[in-house]
């Protein structure tokens, strides 16, 4: 509780937000706030300025193109993700969103906030990587697009750098997806998670085992092939109170295989 002193502003356009972010090195965008405010409560982060993105309409909304590509505004909440008609085109999105934390967090937390905070236990970074999502980033001068597997750089660190805003996420068409996790209690924090996609090449991205999701392209779709591929990745996961590195390495194999199995069942 009890944040450090901070300045606050709520722009109504992306341009205004980018101007405000560029104006102060200590400015940070505030999306749903379900991670950032907690970090600020612990005074582990103390931005000088919070640029609240909640009033910017152009960061909201979900568009489903005729070719099946979904374009999801970064300020789309988890609740919108799991309730919107458009996201039914890629069912895994709503299924995973429904297991993030709880109703309150899902009502405020956003897809953009989830990926930009890139807490290694988050659900969406591995999912975005597995689905081959593209992240659209606006800066003061230009807009650029980064593949999800290149977006995540480190814990709490992404390609959306200082002064930039993730504006939308593009997700190609597909249905053969899977997600598996071992969590602390039902819908709790992930100990290890994995997302899989079998639309074209087999892709499985594993979370909680490194600073960024680990993308693996297994040679086959059977459990042994997936587990071999995960073993081949030489994971060196962190140890903490919930799991040793060794246990996480083992779970990574199990959940990767399960995610692929789920995806296969939908092929």
């Amino acid at each position: 509780m009890l944040l450090r002193e901070v300045e606050y502003v709520r722009p109504s356009s992306l341009d205004e937000a980018l101007r405000l972010l560029a104006a102060d090195d200590g400015a940070r965008p505030l999306a749903g706030g379900q991670t950032l405010l907690n970090v600020m409560k612990a005074r582990a982060a103390a931005p000088d300025v919070l640029v609240d993105l909640n009033a910017i309409e152009e960061l909201k909304g979900i568009d489903l193109a005729p070719n099946g590509t979904l374009t999801i505004g970064a300020m789309t909440t988890y609740t919108e993700l799991l309730e919107a008609a458009e996201t039914k085109a890629r069912p895994i999105l709503g299924e995973v969103a429904a297991t993030i934390a709880d109703v309150q967090v899902r009502n405020r937390g956003t897809i953009g906030g989830n990926v930009c905070s890139n807490d290694p236990t988050n659900h969406l970074p591995p999912l975005m990587v597995a689905l081959g999502a593209e992240m659209v980033i606006a800066g003061a001068d230009a807009e650029r697009t980064v593949k999800a597997e290149d977006f995540f750089l480190g814990v709490y660190l992404t390609a959306a750098g200082p002064g930039e805003v993730l504006t939308k996420i593009r997700i190609p068409a597909g249905r053969s997806d899977g997600f598996a996790a071992v969590t602390i209690g039902a819908d709790g924090t992930c100990i290890v998670n994995a997302a899989a996609s079998l639309n074209g090449e087999a892709r499985v991205a594993i979370g909680c085992v490194a600073a960024v999701p680990v993308l693996i392209r297994p040679g086959g779709r059977d459990a042994d092939a997936v587990r071999d591929a995960v073993r081949g990745a030489d994971l060196d996961p962190p140890s903490d109170v919930h799991a040793s590195g060794e246990y996480r390495r083992h779970l990574a194999e199990v959940v990767a295989a399960r995610a692929i199995e789920q995806a296969s069942a939908r092929s």
């Binding site: 709880d102 602390i184 209690g185 039902a186 819908d187 709790g188 924090t189 903490d240 109170v241 919930h242």
Partner: peptide
């Protein structure tokens, strides 16, 4: 029996100082 533990590291840091890491049962549990 399942998750609640005050576990310390060797330096004496509490590894479960909040309800994120100290998991108490929720309705779904």
């Amino acid at each position: 029996a399942t998750h609640e533990t005050f576990t310390y590291d060797a330096e004496g840091n509490l590894l479960t100082p909040n309800f994120y890491d100290y998991h108490v049962p929720h309705a779904m549990d």
